[in-house]
Amino acid sequence: MSVLSQSVIRDRLGLQVDDRRSLVVTPFIESALDADSLDLRLGHHFLFPRLHAQAAVDTENGTPRSELSVHIPAGGDLVLPAHQTVLGATLEFIKLPFDVSGQILTKSSVARSFLVIETAPWIHPNYRGCLTLEIANVSNSTLILHPRMRIGQLILLSIDQPAEIEDLSGTYVGPVRPEAPPNQMLHRH
């Protein structure tokens, strides 16, 4: 595996969508491109976990849970109290090539505020969608998040012997908002 450089990323971004080697990042801004990564911005939609009656969430079998869907328009902000979590999503919609995996990292400036954006950072080849972010404020202070702020970095890694995948997994194809786990019963409001 090797990290894709800026020039390779640029080449991949210039391929047509039906080329399996194509990379899509949209909306794309030139300044997001770094030597070996792409900056990703925070989207406008969030899912706040609500407190529920059960003592615990069964992560394997699913537990009825409830989430509050929130939209923050441009210019607005999201207040995240200390030690609170929220699901967010990247503003950018991404389609990975068949021979490239991705890893999303918290931007260092964001991380130093003790904001963690991703605990499942690996992105499989052929993935397409806005990336769901498991945002956690692990600091002792309330943090204010602004949609469109640069929040993460996408590192792209080429795979030595990529698998030939003809079809797409339907589980997470094409989300444009944060999505809660599909194996759990959701009651969104």
Binding site: L13, G14, L15, Q16, V17, D18, S22, V24, V25, T26, P27, F28, F93, K95, R128, L168, V173, G174, V176
Partner: peptide, 22 residues
């Protein structure tokens, strides 16, 4: 091109054409 993006499950907001034009 827009149809092609949709048929591949991709948001069609930045279109790459066969001649490489965006």
């Amino acid at each position: 091109v827009i149809e092609k993006y949709l048929s591949f499950g991709v948001v069609p907001s930045r279109l790459v054409f066969p001649n490489g034009e965006v």
